[in-house]
């Protein structure tokens, strides 16, 4: 009986996820200005990556730790950061935006009075955002790689997309954490923005984690070990490994990173689901943001 119930709950959860994605995609399709904005932000991100590669060079220490040295590699390093940043942003911000919007319009009460699965409800905007991002990302990524002569084979594209997918999955839990902040605090965006930036820097979006120790012998190792706790770190590392190939020195062996990524992602989703229940109870007690 209990197994039947769990099966029923999972099925209901997937239905919620599905209808949420359908809602968001229908919304996006009917709101064309937003689509243009999406395309522009992706294009600007790519262009910024190109500018960075022209303007900056990695310092010798960083180059030694990572194996990245040429301008093209620096460009790919930054583009990788932008690409993963875009998808992690989807996972991080979409649930929070959903909550904020639903609070603003008073829809959240109508949702929270249902017996629906809250995690599924919060994950649906992440997936729909990621799908729209992919539509813009794939052609943009292929074009830029081709123009720079780095589009060597389909293996690179395939593995890149695999890591992008892993990124979305691993960041979902953090998206739920951000949504929780929105449930509790009305002006939640500055806090979430700060945490998001901190996490991006910490996990190696702009400075490789490998270089922390050589950059600062005191704080470097501490930061490095903190970064190890976040699945996001391995997303960046694996993304660069599959882009640069074997010349790039990963933090751990690739298969170990995949295992850590999988385990930490699942662990964080479980923690997020548990915390969400606590946060909902807290919000109901105090009548905070949602109510």
């Amino acid at each position: 009986m209990a197994v039947q119930n769990v099966g029923f709950e999972i099925k209901a959860g997937f239905r919620v996820l599905g209808i949420g994605i359908k809602r968001d995609l229908t919304n996006i399709r009917r709101y064309k200005v937003r689509l243009i904005g999406w395309f522009l932000s992706m294009a600007i991100g790519m262009f910024t990556g190109y500018l960075f590669s022209v303007l900056f060079e990695l310092n010798p220490a960083t180059a030694g730790e990572t194996g990245i040295s040429t301008a093209t590699q620096v460009f790919i390093f930054f583009i990788g950061g932008v690409a993963l940043g875009t998808f992690s942003d989807s996972a991080l911000w979409a649930p929070m935006e959903r909550i904020n919007q639903d609070i603003h319009y008073g829809t959240l009460e109508a949702v929270f009075v249902t017996p629906s699965n809250r995690v599924a409800y919060l994950l649906s905007p992440t997936i729909s955002d990621a799908l729209v991002n992919l539509i813009f990302f794939i052609p943009a990524f292929i074009i830029i790689m081709t123009v720079n002569g780095t589009l060597t084979n389909l293996y690179v594209i395939g593995t890149t997309l695999l890591v992008v997918l892993a990124t979305i999955v691993s960041m979902m839990a953090f998206g739920i954490f951000f949504a929780m902040i929105a449930l509790l605090i009305r002006k939640s965006q500055p806090i979430a923005l700060f945490l998001s930036m901190l996490m991006q820097f910490l996990c190696g979006a702009y400075v490789p984690v490998q270089a922390y120790e050589s950059m600062n012998p005191v704080f470097g190792p501490i930061l490095k070990y903190i970064a190890y706790c976040f699945p996001y770190t391995y997303c960046y590392d694996l993304f660069r490994y599959f882009t640069f190939g074997s010349q790039y020195n990963t933090l751990f062996p690739v298969w170990v990173e995949f295992v850590i990524l999988g385990v930490t992602s699942i662990a964080f989703v479980i923690i997020a689901g548990f915390l969400l229940k606590l946060v909902e109870r807290k919000a109901k007690n105090v009548g905070l943001s949602i109510l």
């Binding site: 209808i19 919304n27 319009y105 409800y121």
Partner: peptide, 21 residues
């Protein structure tokens, strides 16, 4: 205001029907 403005009435109802399984 608590409906999804760009969805039709039917789509709105379908969405919430799914939340109620």
């Amino acid at each position: 205001r608590s409906t999804y403005a760009r969805l039709t009435g039917r789509e709105n109802l379908e969405f919430f029907a799914t939340l109620y399984n």
